[in-house]
Design a protein around this nucleic acid. Sequence first.
DNA 1: TAGATTGTTAATCGATTAACAATC
DNA 2: TAGATTGTTAATCGATTAACAATC
Lengths: 212, 212
Amino acid sequence: MGDREISKAVIKRLPRYYRYLGEILNNGVERISSGELSGKMQVTASQIRQDLNNFGGFGQQGYGYNVKFLYDEIGKILGVNRDHPMIIVGGGNFGHTLAKYDFKKSGFVTKAIFDVRPEMIGEYVGGIPVYMMSELESYLKKETVEIAVLTVPKNKVKEVADRLVKYGIKAFWNFAHLDLDVPDDVVVENVHLIDSLMQLSYRISDYEKKAE
Amino acid sequence: MGDREISKAVIKRLPRYYRYLGEILNNGVERISSGELSGKMQVTASQIRQDLNNFGGFGQQGYGYNVKFLYDEIGKILGVNRDHPMIIVGGGNFGHTLAKYDFKKSGFVTKAIFDVRPEMIGEYVGGIPVYMMSELESYLKKETVEIAVLTVPKNKVKEVADRLVKYGIKAFWNFAHLDLDVPDDVVVENVHLIDSLMQLSYRISDYEKKAE
DNA sequence: TAGATTGTTAATCGATTAACAATC
DNA sequence: TAGATTGTTAATCGATTAACAATC
């Protein structure tokens, strides 16, 4: 199991399958065929079956897929069946907003926020305590943290990420607009909002061009 | 020109080229070859040349690319050489944070925030005025708006998006965790934070599996 | 001119779609 | 059993990489 390398394109589609299956499950539907699911999502039935068969045969010939079972299995593949303790590093606007955001139902639990500003000591944001950056190492020595969310200013990110790697962090959710340089066993997921906006902007112009 | 359809994969790489070229330009570098750029980014020289030649011959044999020129050209392709007036619809946490975020240098200018809560009337967030949702139509009749940022609660998105489409909005930057259903001439760029986290979570588990 | 490096064509690789035998 | 639908193999399509002639 898990021998073949799963392509990035497949991984990217999994959360979307998971979301649709969750909704279908909520609607009380018990089973679904790749054909029906294909109708609801913008994906061919063939692709759905191929994607799922990367991880195992979750369906049954002549029947389709049991929605609850498939939902749970994809949940396991994505790792949302267990908790992922997170810390938010950088307590500015974005850090604040993410702290208040509810990722708990997907298993992502924010444990602490770290910032440099002394006036934030003892504060709570969305029920989550704020600590000083100087406490980072001692905190990570006694607490288990899986993911570090990087919301520090761009010019501080490199230094902060290096420290976190040194303290044993293996996963970053990076909101800074730069590419992190980390060891091979550390994973980075980037959220580059400006890139996203630029793609939108391209598509606006592109459309206008075609319409002319 | 602009006959062939440009693939999504190419578009996705453009903002990254733009960012690297901006940095290289800031470092006072005048020219760069695809080989050198390839070394700095995680992209083959061949891919760089292929990508760029989708839009025209920006380089010169034996010389390479003029950094400033290439930077500006990619800027034009992405449409960041001109202003894109935006409104933020939904003045909650996320709306607030985006309002304070500085997208102006890339040409994305937030003009107004819309919310349903009467207590927000007359407020300013990051210097941007808050209006009531009931004023949406009259506002859009007198102001030019290119992009609507959707930060309203998930259960309101469909209704809000439909209204905005009716009032002539052709581009959405959607932060709600659902797929918008819009006419063909309307473009949607999604920011699905939970999907991003799930991909990270998959890669964490995946790595652990391999390490065993 | 010689050297460098593009623009572009050809080759390879990977991902998506189609088809169908297996089987519930 | 007959019908449905999967799992999987084969065919197609598209994207990436390699190669090289064109040319600055």
